[in-house]
Design a protein around this nucleic acid. Structure first.
Lengths: 237, 237
DNA sequence: GGCTCATGTAAAAGCCGTTCACATGAGCTG
DNA sequence: CAGCTCATGTGAACGGCTTTTACATGAGCC
């Protein structure tokens, strides 16, 4: 094994060498275990093997650490969404749904990031760079909505892309925050959050005139809503 | 003026006489000012004019106070939703939208309740009576969805009412929690949260086959989606 | 080799949550 | 009304957290 500055205590001189990173990592652990409210600056310091005052060399205060985590969270989030969107391949609707799934997956698999980003109660205006990171993540959803809106069936009023993006975001965030996290699932559900969100988005898209019952090719106009086929919630028995 | 046990200190013997109520009230004030995380047991005691130990005669600990507030919140919420639903008068769709508006209004006007209910990070299973209150509130939405589902246009698969209810809830919560609170509005919006949610729900309902462009009478089947009329987001200029 | 400055420590102040022994007095009992 | 009791409030104390300040250390540069 080739460790040198591993966790806990082990071998370490007066200087840690990588404290900032260690603190962020520790904070992530703690937040995912006890939520952003239960997380403690002193605990993170302890976990990194330094005195309670040491973190102040790297973060103005506890809030700034949380903001840093939120910032990283938005960056990872953006990259995940970008990847899921994959510039709309193989077709716009499929890619769009993949983005929704990625949203939930992130909330589920990175609960610490997610709560730092959305449930930490930080004043959003206080931190311009954080705000910017959040905007960049949202921009992915917005770009996807833009492409989708362009495909809206002719003969219908074209939905504003920004509004669509906000709708999708609110659905995703709503599902994630009410039912999303696996470990401390807030409520019993008759279906998985993923399925719930997928159905929600499909119904919504159908409300905009998209045909969503068939996937091959690009989405096209649809003058009859889904006919006799099963709805997006599965077979009605 | 006829005060006797008013706030602050003023005239008061050894016993407060109404401490539990005073604490709940103080907590509401503080939570709405500084969020459920910033709220402090000692602060509430101070505001009620008692020693920091006094609250423990009425609440096992800080969490129980917050849970009490959440409980009351759910009760008020339930009553508000019931009133808004008004048993589906004058017609199901109108009443349904009124419920959505009531949801947002509650989040906006009672931010303290709302955060205690949804953002306090309390383990939901820890408190059965709290859980029950929350279920009762959700039951209103569910009942409304049930009625709406019964009106689903024939010839289309009937959407499960429970799923509809969950969808509506997630939309409402998503909008409320991302854009809802007026005082510390989290993000800039091109429209009001109310309009945003209304459009979202209308599009969703249309996706289920409801005609939503006209209100008079009860919702009926619709074999053509909204024709050339303006969408739920207003005139497309 | 010696300087400097980023990085860490120790100690302390002030706050909070929580507990415990004790004080008070409201309301019942007779 | 006297006296008892018990719910309710107090004061003091413990441990933990955040944050500040003065001081220590040693990595990197000349």
């Amino acid at each position: 094994m080739s460790w040198r500055k591993d966790q806990g205590r082990a071998e370490r001189g007066y200087h840690h060498g990588n404290l900032k990173e260690a603190l962020l990592q520790a904070a992530l652990d703690l937040i995912s275990k006890k939520g952003p409210a239960g997380f403690t600056f002193a605990d993170a310091a302890r976990m990194a093997g330094v005195s309670p005052a040491a973190p102040y060399r790297h973060f103005r205060d506890r809030d700034e650490l949380i903001a840093s985590i939120a910032q990283r969270g938005f960056e990872q989030f953006e990259s995940l969404l970008t990847q899921a969107w994959d510039d709309g391949r193989p077709d716009t609707v499929t890619a769009f749904e993949r983005v929704g799934k990625a949203y939930l997956a992130f909330a589920r698999e990175e609960p610490a990031f997610y709560s730092a980003m959305f449930e930490s109660g930080l004043p959003p205006d206080a931190n311009p760079t954080l705000m910017a990171a959040s905007e960049r993540a949202f921009a992915i959803i917005r770009a996807a909505a833009e492409r989708l809106a362009a495909l809206a069936p002719p003969g219908m009023p074209r939905p504003p892309a920004m509004m669509m993006a906000l709708h999708i975001w609110s659905m995703s965030h709503g599902v994630a925050s009410l039912f999303g996290r696996g470990d401390a699932a807030r409520r019993k559900l008759p279906m998985s959050p993923e399925d719930l969100l997928e159905a929600e988005v499909l119904i919504y898209l159908r409300g905009l005139g998209f045909r969503t019952d068939q996937r091959p090719g690009t989405a096209t106009a649809d003058d009859k809503p889904a006919g006799e086929k099963a709805g997006p919630w599965g077979k009605p028995k």
